[in-house]
Design a binder for these strands. Structure first.
Ligand code: FES
Ligand code: FES
Lengths: 157, 157
DNA sequence: TCTAAAGAGGACTGATTTGGTCCTATTGGG
DNA sequence: CCCAATAGGACCAAATCAGTCCTCTTTAGA
């Protein structure tokens, strides 16, 4: 059977929180933010915020400065940070199921392997979609621009 | 805080199994397949297969015929069944986080709500990607076409 | 040079979610 | 009628995730 490995798209709370914090940081690039401050501003409990920030730093989305006066800073301009990267930093590679390029596991049902390439196609489609959207796209100005409340299906792009 | 609800993309084993079974069914459209048969052919344990098939039927991807001589049949030609539908049938709506059109929960941090529309953009991008791929795309002929074993990053479409 | 303010890195735990099983209807053909 | 199927849930065990905490390293500056 198809023997799934690690790979399932699984974006969640943490990722969502991350975007909230990153958006806040994007407001003034070049500034250094401490964990405490970011936790406060985003309403994420501090230990959790710390965990997220560490992951983002490991993923080269933030650069960290240790020691006093330390903190985090965006590693690049917001427009160059993609949602895909953020997800990868927190949830690991973006893929749906096994039978993924690079996965070495191989299912026992050789006949079905032909499907392999097709999942990859799906994966690539999603990855592309996610790579097209940057933090700058997410981080619209914080002065909430009258969010339409009723079924906002309209054209935000 | 952003108060996430139900909505997280979460395609997984079940979905993967489903595609395997559906691909098998797509080979000869119009034929009626019993749970037992599908379970065997796809190497999914029968009770699990049954569960999946029921979900697919509920999602109008399959039509079921009860009673003896009963079974399942594709509700439409494979080319008209999208991967998106299959996912929805098994894992529920395709979306990443809350702040989704239609979700009535509302986070307490009004300032952050401006991000809302942007998640929707992400959601829509993924949904579109998934709607573009049909079961027919996944169900390439079962005589495995010499799957390239070494880093298959090449152009399978 | 000492201290305190930061981050790094992991171990750990409780809560959710999944995957998987099973049991009891209901349906329909022969 | 009976048997072969599906429908629909309840249920459980295992995996995963969110969240916490503890200890170590780095660095500014008194
Ligand atoms: S490796 Fe996935 S179907 Fe064979
Ligand atoms: S409802 Fe999601 S940020 Fe407000």
């Amino acid at each position: 059977m198809v023997l799934l490995g690690r790979y399932v798209i699984r974006l969640s709370k943490l990722t969502d929180y991350a975007v909230v914090m990153l958006s806040y940081m994007a407001a003034r690039e070049g500034e250094v933010y401490t964990t405490a401050r970011l936790a406060q501003r985003s309403a994420v409990p501090e230990p959790t915020a710390a965990k997220i920030l560490k992951s983002l730093a490991r993923g080269s989305i933030l650069v960290s400065q240790r020691g006093s006066n330390g903190g985090y800073e965006l590693a690049r301009p917001a427009a160059e940070i993609t949602v895909a990267e953020i997800i990868v930093a927190l949830d690991g590679p973006i893929a749906l199921a096994a039978c993924v390029e690079g996965s070495s596991d191989h299912c026992g049902v050789e006949q079905l392997c032909s499907m392999r390439g097709n999942w990859n196609r799906v994966n690539r489609a999603i990855r592309d979609a996610l790579e097209d959207i940057t933090l700058a796209d997410m981080a619209v100005p914080f002065v909430a621009p009258a969010v339409v409340e009723t079924r906002p299906e309209q054209g935000l792009r």
